[in-house]
């Protein structure tokens, strides 16, 4: 796990080495990040085997695209998370099209084991910094239940507003309003 700024710098260095096709650096990068990124994929897909497949494809993409990574534009973990999340959502949507996907469950469905209150696990706190994550927790807590649920459901399932509206059986405008007000609230809260 990448625990602090020094480790994040290390990861940045490793991506630079991976850009030069350094296999040892790639192995170290995998060791540092794979557990966390696997959970990102699991969150979207809720299937370990598919999540592993996505993780593998994501690391292959990281191997290939490492030369395009810019530390000035993105932290290394968010760069990797973005790859995994995008691929996970693509895979989820492919499953939906082919009728293979697990039926979308709302983030507050007890069966998912996810917590709508948005309490970040220790590993996430270590990764992004406890102060930032605690503030983010407080800010998420200030959102209405509808706002929190909509933001997370859309994030996890990669829904459009239209899909989310059908999912909740509510007008599109209602769902979009939840999300946008939630974003505004989070923005204001994080700036205070």
């Amino acid at each position: 796990m990448v625990r602090d700024a020094a480790a994040s710098e290390r990861l940045t260095y490793l991506i630079g080495r991976v850009a030069m096709q350094d296999r040892a650096a790639f192995k170290e990068m995998y060791g540092l990040t794979s557990h966390f990124l696997f959970r990102v994929a699991i969150r979207h897909l809720r299937d370990a085997e598919r999540a592993e497949d996505v993780l593998q494809e994501s690391f292959m993409e990281a191997w290939q695209k490492a030369p395009t990574y810019s530390a000035a534009l993105s932290k290394p973990m968010t760069w990797l998370m973005t790859i995994v999340a995008r691929r996970s959502i693509d895979e989820y949507r492919r499953q939906v099209r082919e009728g293979q996907a697990i039926k979308p469950a709302s983030i507050d469905d007890p069966e998912t084991g996810w917590d709508i209150s948005v309490v970040f696990p220790d590993s996430v706190r270590e990764l992004f910094g406890s102060d930032v994550m605690e503030r983010l927790e407080r800010c998420f807590a200030q959102l209405s239940v509808d706002q929190r649920r909509a933001i997370q459901d859309i994030r996890v399932h990669g829904m459009t507003y239209d899909e989310a509206a059908r999912f909740y059986k509510l007008p599109r405008q209602t769902v979009a309003s939840w999300v946008r007000r939630g974003i505004q609230s989070l923005t204001g809260c994080m700036q205070t």
Binding site: H35, F38, A48, G113, W114, F120, F140, V156
Partner: peptide, 10 residues
């Protein structure tokens, strides 16, 4: 992106 991650360490 970190929001909603499963807390289980898998």
């Amino acid at each position: 992106l970190p929001a909603g991650l499963p807390s289980e360490e898998v």
